[in-house]
Amino acid sequence: MGFFLETLFGGLMAGMLYSLIALGFVLIYKASGVFNFAQGAMVLFAALAMSRFAEWIPQWLGFESLLLANLLAFIAAMALMVVLAWAIERLCLSKLVNQEGITLLMATLGIAYFLDGFGQTLFGSDIYNINVGMPKDPAFILEGMFEGGVMISKEDLVAAVIAALLVVVLALFFQKTKTGRALRAVADDHQAAQSIGIPLNKIWVIVWSVAGFAALVAGIIWGSKLGVQFTLSLVALKALPVVILGGLTSVPGAIIGGLIIGVGEKLSEIYIGPMLGGGIEIWFAYVLALGFLLVRPQGLFGEKIIDRV
């Protein structure tokens, strides 16, 4: 039982990170109808920027404070993500307005490839660290209930808290601010939003910037745990089934879908994996999402799609 709980917690933590990346997907899909394959590349790009700026900025300015370095690196990386969002809108999205979903999807694949190459050309292609002072030692909980307690990583715990905070912040942003309301209006109907004077281009830059912010946070958490390297870009592929499961247009769906996939992956690997020769983690999420898709195409919380003629 203790082992089961450990696996469960481990899955929840991993799921929280999937949720963070899925959140980026959902935000962009809601506001622009683009299924952003480049979200993973954005995570890698942001994480590379963060880690390298944290290394370079103290050298340039000649100081040694880790906190200050991280702070400045975060600001610089975020600024870079905003520039990126602007460039993507200017050079790509604005030229593909009213194209079909499949075209936009392929365009974001192109963006992903470009970012992978560009990021590694700018920042290098080794494995880098992000040190934002996350606790590395494990903690034990529920020691009263099980012998030896249940081990969880403090790092994961902090990460989960940060992820949860981010979700709350985004929810508030969407519900309470004027920009958030405009974003929701755009999500509902591009043309109607435009006709009441909401500038679409600006909204898209904002959305891609917010998605860039989510990518940066995910990149920092993931990078500080496992190091910043090319494989980060592939993490986004893990987040795809999450969005399908949760529903493409639903923020809570992204969160809950992420948790389900995270937990499902870990549990299935431990309890079903050995029967199939192991390593099933790489396809489990996909098969789960695919099965779900056939039963309920719009996902857990997505809006029902009605085709009109």
Partner: peptide, 8 residues
């Protein structure tokens, strides 16, 4: 990296 960027 160049190939990636050019393709993209």
């Amino acid at each position: 990296h160049l190939v990636h960027m050019i393709f993209g």
